[in-house]
Design a protein around this nucleic acid. Structure first.
Lengths: 204, 204
DNA sequence: CGACTGATCTTTACACTGTTAGGATAGGTT
DNA sequence: AACCTATCCTAACAGTGTAAAGATCAGTCG
């Protein structure tokens, strides 16, 4: 009797909800969002095609649940990237940016899902993201860098620009144009943050 | 006898290929890429569901043809945005960045398609883009700005960073997170380019 | 003029998708 | 014991991308 993974143990299956999410994440990693069908998810969970509807209102709800987990993983990756980077706030800020791109490179399917709101059922995926740990991690490290004096400018503006630059690098890399480039993603992430004036100051 | 639009005039229909692309672009504007079905395209062109296959190998080929046109329109928009912006190279550079975001805001369906390579049939959409006018417009204006002395740094690096920042702003705006923000897209585009140190220098 | 040819278009069909409706089953409660 | 409700399954519908086979029509060659 193969109970799948988690704790509370459901009724007939053994926490099917969790099994469906795991199967979905697996497919996400293999075939991307567009290659993910609810029926295949059900198949992998060893259950009929209609079973998921007892745990998720529709496909978007499943994806939303997966995305919610993804938001947390992204936030965790950012936090880890920041603390690994070094002692100064500027170094941590830089490390966070690199970690953002790394997350996209290592989990492209999940990363794309996080920013494809039309597939999600959540009322406001924007709010979900903004309210999520990720943005708070960004602000946290940024505030420290400003206090440190290594970054200047209006906090919200700098946060916006940093997010845009790093996010742009991430998608342009995983979705083609930059991915075909000879540059590695580390090089790209570094270059972008440097030019932004965040990683190092290229020339004083 | 409603001949649809273009010049060469096909056989039975009157340039069906062009009519299919126009219908596709129309749907793209109304329902986005994910709401575009080959059958609906055929329906709007007043033709059977299999007819498109005599002009395009598959759905991806149609989308590729549309995207190719989109690349040209984007390049044109960038060029126009640059020349409208003012006399100095820095001003033109700034205007181009704003035009990039404007294009995404005004044609979100098309913009998303351009950067969704998995839907395209083109061998290398990356190459298509890089070799396209858009990137050359960017480099052109950038070189002028460097010559002018208003932008410093390795040309390729600055081009990369600028593209990433502006592209990130564009998608984050059209795909949710920033779109729900109270900022207008003009404000966002301005802020990003300013912080980048391209629009103006925030503080010397 | 009439037969042929090849591109264009239609009809039909298949496998797949998301989703719903109705019936079976098996825990937990009374 | 009877019951109830969450869970799950079978069957079905409309819609999708795509392939196969036949119809039709423009232009060419006898």
């Amino acid at each position: 009797m193969l109970t799948v993974s988690s704790s509370p143990r459901g009724y007939h299956h053994g926490d099917l909800r969790r099994a469906l999410m795991d199967a979905g994440i697996e497919i996400l990693g293999e075939h991307g969002v567009d290659g993910l069908s609810l029926r295949e998810v059900a198949r992998r969970a060893g259950v009929s095609q209609a079973a998921p509807y007892h745990h998720f209102a529709d496909k978007g709800s499943l994806l939303s649940a997966i995305a919610e987990q993804g938001y947390l993983e992204l936030a965790e990756a950012l936090r880890a990237g920041a603390s690994h980077a070094g002692g100064t706030a500027l170094q941590r800020f830089h490390g966070m940016g690199v970690a953002y791109v790394r997350f996209a490179v290592e989990h492209p399917g999940m990363f794309r899902l996080l920013f494809r709101p039309e597939m999600l059922a959540t009322a406001s995926p924007a709010g979900t993201f903004a309210a999520t740990a990720s943005y708070r991690v960004l602000e946290e490290v940024l505030v420290a860098a400003i206090a440190e004096g290594s970054v200047t400018g209006p906090r919200d503006d700098v946060a916006l620009a940093a997010w845009c630059a790093v996010h742009g690098a991430a998608i342009l890399y995983v979705d083609g144009p930059l991915g075909a480039d000879e540059r590695t993603w580390e090089d790209i992430a570094n270059t972008v943050t440097v030019i932004l004036g965040l990683g190092f100051v290229p020339r004083a």
